[in-house]
Design a protein around this nucleic acid. Structure first.
Lengths: 187, 187
DNA sequence: CCATAACCTGAACCTGAACTCCGGTTCCGA
DNA sequence: TCGGAACCGGAGTTCAGGTTCAGGTTATGG
């Protein structure tokens, strides 16, 4: 479907990369709010060129999000290397959240409702989910996470933390509360 | 500042109320996304009339949010009546979150960054915060909430839960995790 | 070095949604 | 009952921002 009949012309490939870079940086910074003209200018190109490579703004955003998801999968794979299950879990959790903090577009994609145009990303998402599931399971089996903790809960936790990323960065506190519980220890 | 020189004319007051009702319902349902024309139609009025009563969309939204905050303050006051500090806390927490679930506009105001136009609401917000602070402190003093729990943490917790309100309602699970902690009980 | 297909540019265009404006209507005090 | 201030309606205006396209440019195979 995305099979290119012929390899892209040299300048076209270069420009495509420039667009991706510019968009990546701007989206990360201000999320959905950046406008196409800005991206074009930052990339040193005309708007028309953006539209030659991406059908519309959504498609461009989707491409960026896809990239981030690949990075996330790499990170998850790395975390899974750790022998200590808890270390693996923490590495994944904090790595994920730090990336989210650094990238407004990523948060946008993760916090908003499911967009139909995100479909291209389904594959990357699935990969990531699989690894996450394994890491979570390992931590549970090792008795470091509550018995009934599931991969879905990982999503809940991260969404919760991401919601506390605007303004003062209270998200670490939020994660701490989540880890240790709100209630008094001695019950 | 909002002091009306003369009491509003009868039809004006009636219409103002109709606008508030229509806007309240639609905003609660679809948040910021509703358009002025819709509100006017639902209220059985022309758009012009909306603008006679509210400077712009922001102002109308702010008025609605203000209402919700008053309701929230009432709820908090009621919760504070309970003798049991933990009961008071739970009543406040779940009451707050259930209201948030029922009202997209409320979530919008609470999840988004601070808007300058929200300033009119500062007063209601302060009232609510004061009561919340008292309830939290009571629960801490009674040894039911962790020593270092502060009113700010209440905000973190609620933001986290609200972020999990889109789609399947996983927010209750999120709150449970928060209350009990993610980690295995026996450490 | 050509021919030509692929590519680029950016001003113009289009759309949707907030907001305005003024002729017509309604309420209210005297 | 009447004058006029306050109010209402909703078509039309404005504006921001995404998208297009005619005309010029450039890479590439032969």
């Amino acid at each position: 479907m995305t099979a290119p009949k012929r390899p892209l012309r040299a300048d076209a490939r270069r420009n495509r990369e420039a667009v991706l870079d510019a968009a990546g940086e701007l989206f990360a910074q201000r999320g959905d709010a950046v406008q196409m003209d800005e991206i074009a200018e930052r990339a040193g190109l005309g708007v028309g060129t953006l539209y030659r490579h991406f059908a519309d703004k959504q498609a461009l955003l989707a491409a960026i999000i896809g990239r981030r998801f690949e990075a996330m999968t790499t990170l998850a794979r790395a975390a899974d290397e750790a022998e200590d299950p808890w270390a693996a879990f923490e590495t994944l959790l904090y790595g994920y959240l730090e990336s989210a903090q650094a990238d407004a577009a990523f948060r946008f994609a993760l916090l908003g409702p499911e967009e139909p145009s995100w479909n291209d990303i389904a594959a990357e998402k699935t990969d990531f989910s699989a690894i996450t599931e394994r890491i979570v399971q390992r931590a549970v089996d090792a008795g470091r996470l509550r018995e009934d903790f599931r991969a879905d809960d990982f999503v809940l936790v991260t969404r919760g933390a991401m919601a506390n990323m605007t303004g003062a960065g209270g998200w670490r506190r939020h994660v701490t509360l989540l880890l240790e519980g709100i209630r008094s220890p001695e019950r």
